[in-house]
Design a protein around this nucleic acid. Structure first.
Lengths: 344, 344
DNA sequence: TCAGATAATGATACCCTTTTCATTTTATTT
DNA sequence: AAATAAAATGAAAAGGGTATCATTATCTGA
């Protein structure tokens, strides 16, 4: 059963395709189509269950009414919640949303973007996995379609972005730990560490140490790969000498690693906050029901999603390339997982 | 800067669009295009940065190389993980994936599906929010495009599905509680309760009670709306008389409600498993690091995603409407959140 | 050397909608 | 009644690929 086309409709009604098209696109009034004609068209459309062919329309108009979202991993709740809100916003305006995950693979990122451009998306929201380089930046700006960065960004690029203030919140959190009397503060980073997010968090941590005249020590710094968290984590953590109270506090680079840390601590009878204080980036609901509740630096992905969607919509409709970048201030919640360290 | 078209390429090379098309679609050998010509074409394509117009292609072929995923809420990790694997699978085959959330709104579900069909998707993977009705079923089967249900399904429909065995796992979990000596077992359901998932879980619970000659009591049964969990939960839980040990065990209808329950228990000094034993549907990573670790019924969303993707790919390519439905057996993990109840 | 086969390439219709511009019909003015 | 303006509708091109069928160039064998 072939789909009904405009021509079929036209023949069946003895009304030109032009007129029908006007009616269907809400231009009846504007183009002076009589009400009588409009009624007849609308009735027949229902009757024959006419569905416009999107390819023909897109071919003619050049607009796909589709945008693309590219993130590291859609199954990461942080990105999933961003995506939820982006889709929500675009759905309201009649847009559809394509998504794809890069899994931190630069080659995949390039490929996905090419495919999406091929698909004729009207814009892309991207959390880049590739570190900044003039080549990549040029590649992205030369796409000729609106692009908005989320979560991660290229500070020196003209590509607009919606990100959290990772530097400042990392700085503040570290400061908080210092205020609690901690001097041996460890930072657990997640690879790749050359994304703006992780780089800023590391920088904030280091700068806060420096501001307090505390040295940055390699033995208080560890990097993990999210993909193989299970095995090497305790081994590496061993370096932190938590048992011997060498590091007295940890700033954890993201929520997944935090959960892995906690599990590791439980297995090795390391107590929070007695043996070590803990603040985690990226709040999770469960942080508040763990014993003890985990301190965290909360970034609302919903806000990022909303703002990014609105920004992209603006870029698509206005065709101006202006960029009012947004830097969202995370909230720091200090809970029982951080304790005051008495001087000795 | 207008995009380069096939015609441009054709003129610039003095080679017909046909031949170029063959080369670009990997039919060079098959159609007997000389290697020399193929090389020239490929070189020029790179040089001019030719990107095929997807609308034109879709218009001609009728294939969009795009599929749609429709779930209740992409920000629900369960669905996000399903989506991840579906996208992964389709990406390999050159497909793109549209997604949208229904938020359990039947009207939205209908709308999304219509839009996707308009967009010309080659297939849809759907977790239906609408309960079975012959009208809805007919509406879906008359779409004329391959459709696969995930998570939820219509048992009597011919629409193929990949779901978990919710009935059996609910039955078994209830049985486990009974084996541990529990006789007052509560079930916490999530609205809407007329999805196959929740209905099956409730049915399994009831049947297991019956099989053990235990009565189903309304006071041991509660329904919650995921959207407004915070307020009414303790109020409703009060009915379970947990403090007075009226209900000695709870089977929780999904992971979100479980977290809310635990928080509520903490706030009201109700201890697991001393005051009440707990088994939750839908395993979460954090269940194992909570004190005590929470028993759970684990369904691997990855498996559902993989299988559903392969099923839909099969339906798309083979055009046969056969359906080898898949029912996945969840794993039940009994942890310290369930205790033996001594007879008195 | 030429018929016949095979290899290589091209002309063109088609997919369906939007949009420009032209045309026909009806209303208004003088 | 004629001229002009306004309202309503239609013809046809354009958009960029794919696929059918036709055609030309090259090769084979007798």
């Amino acid at each position: 059963m072939k789909r009904v086309s405009l021509s079929d409709l036209s023949k069946s009604l003895n009304i030109s395709k032009t007129t029908i098209s006007f009616v269907l696109n809400g231009k009846a009034k504007e183009k002076g189509v009589s009400e009588e004609t409009e009624r007849r068209v609308l009735k027949k459309v229902k009757e024959l269950n006419y569905i416009p062919n999107n390819f023909a329309r897109g071919l003619r108009t050049g607009k796909s009414m589709t945008i693309g979202i590219v993130v590291a991993d859609i199954s990461n709740p942080f990105y999933a919640r961003i995506c939820r809100n982006i889709e929500n916003e675009f759905d309201k305006k009649g847009y559809n949303v394509l998504f794809s995950s890069t899994y931190e693979n630069p080659e995949k990122e390039r490929h996905i973007i090419n495919v999406m451009v091929e698909r004729g998306v009207d814009g892309i929201i991207l959390s880049p996995t590739r570190p900044y380089s003039s080549r990549v930046n040029k590649e992205l700006t030369s796409l000729e379609i609106p692009l908005v960065f989320i979560d991660r960004h290229y500070p020196t690029s003209e590509i607009p972005f919606v990100v959290a203030n990772n530097y400042q919140s990392s700085y503040n959190a570290t400061e908080k730990l210092i205020e609690h009397g901690h001097k041996q503060i460890a930072f657990i980073a997640i690879k790749p560490t050359n994304t703006s997010v992780m780089a800023d968090r590391i920088r904030g941590y280091k700068d806060a140490l420096k501001a307090a005249n505390l040295p940055f020590r390699k033995k208080y710094y560890a990097e993990f790969d999210l993909e193989d968290l299970s095995k090497p984590i305790y081994h590496k953590l061993d370096c932190l000498n938590l048992r011997e109270h060498s590091a007295t506090a940890i700033l954890s680079g993201n929520n997944k690693i935090t959960l892995a840390l906690i599990e590791c601590f439980q297995r090795n009878k390391i107590l929070i906050p007695n043996d070590v204080s803990l603040i985690s980036f990226d709040y999770l609901d469960v942080f508040s029901i763990l014993t003890p509740p985990i301190s965290s630096i909360q970034i609302h992905p919903e806000e990022i999603g909303d703002k990014a969607a609105k920004m992209l919509l603006g870029l698509i409709s206005s065709s101006k390339k202006s960029y009012d970048n947004l830097v969202i201030e995370p909230q720091i919640h200090i809970k029982e997982s951080v304790r005051f360290l008495s001087e000795d």
